[in-house]
């Protein structure tokens, strides 16, 4: 029984990690309708920045979020303004997808050029120490990631439903043309939303860096799971991404113990395929196509 509880705890902690990485991705897709293939590289850039500030200034890694999140906000906003927006006039939507793939490759190689191929370890500052909670042991840093993921989901929901800007963002996501007729500057909302989505992954970067060493390819490692989580939860749904992350985290944890750690990913993707066949729009998928009516 204790082993089972430990596996559940591990699964939820892993879910928290997947959630905090995935939320920005689903946010950007839900509003801007662009799948940002450079999302993992945004995480990588944030983790490197966390590492630089932590090592350089001797600060606690969590303090770096004050610099990392704004940096990522600017990176995301600039990506939308100078890369995606000029391509909105292109006849084919897929051009934007290729642009973000190109950005991803460019960022990986830029990181290789600057930091080399070695991994960089952010000081753990005690965050890798296990804590005993009832019958289970988990890492302190994992607990904070989980809490941060929950708070991020709640915070974003409040922002989107209670503020004028948040409602404008939802309006643009649901009916772009009608939003323009309300006097909303749609281009500005897109830039803002891409920035917010990137800032979310900046928060993730500062929290993840003390637990995982960063390298130029760390983004690829995490983002594949993030895509699974986002599609499973329903593209564009923040709550869906959170629930999807928990499901994937739990499956990963259980499969690793009961089936074999080699087959973890096979089981995760197997379940993913089954859910997609049964419910292609994802668990919390709304009528995504509605947002395209103009």
């Amino acid at each position: 029984m204790n082993i089972f509880l430990q596996l559940v705890a591990n699964g939820l902690m892993l879910g928290g990690l997947f959630a905090i990485i995935s939320i920005g991705l689903t946010l950007i897709f839900g509003i801007v309708k662009v799948v940002n293939f450079a999302h993992g590289e945004f995480l990588m850039a944030g983790m490197y920045l966390t590492w630089i500030i932590t090592v350089g200034l001797g600060l606690h890694p969590y303090v770096t979020v004050l610099a990392v999140a704004p940096f990522l906000f600017v990176l995301g906003a600039m990506t939308q303004r100078f890369l995606i927006q000029p391509l909105l006039l292109a006849r084919d939507d897929h051009v934007q997808i290729f642009a973000t793939v190109g950005l991803s490759t460019a960022l990986i190689n830029l990181a290789l050029l600057i930091f080399g191929a070695d991994i960089a370890n952010t000081p753990a500052s005690g965050l890798r120490a296990p804590v005993q909670i009832g019958p289970v042991r988990i890492l302190e840093g994992q607990v904070y990631i989980f809490i941060a993921a929950v708070l991020l989901v709640i915070g974003l929901q409040l922002f989107l439903s209670r503020t004028q800007t948040g409602r404008a963002i939802r309006a643009v996501a649901q009916n772009r043309a009608a939003a323009q007729l309300m006097g909303i500057n749609v281009d500005r909302i897109y830039v803002l939303s891409f920035g917010i989505g990137a800032a979310c992954v900046g928060l993730a970067a500062s929290l993840v860096a003390p637990l995982y060493p960063v390298s130029s390819t760390i983004g690829t490692y995490f983002v594949l799971t993030a895509f699974v989580v986002v599609v499973l939860g329903g593209l564009g749904s923040i709550v869906g991404a959170f629930v999807g992350a928990m499901i994937i985290g739990l499956i990963d944890s259980m499969a690793g113990f009961y089936i074999g750690s080699d087959l973890r990913e096979a089981v995760v993707f197997g379940v993913f395929l089954v859910i997609l066949i049964l419910k292609p729009s994802g668990l919390f998928g709304t009528r995504v196509s509605l947002s395209h009516i103009s």
């Binding site: 404008a168 006097g183 509605l290």
Partner: peptide, 21 residues
Amino acid sequence: PEGRQLFPDMTVRENLLMGAY
């Protein structure tokens, strides 16, 4: 606009508030 073009997943109140943007 033609065809009403409401924000489908917003409440009526939220739709009206968007009008006052």
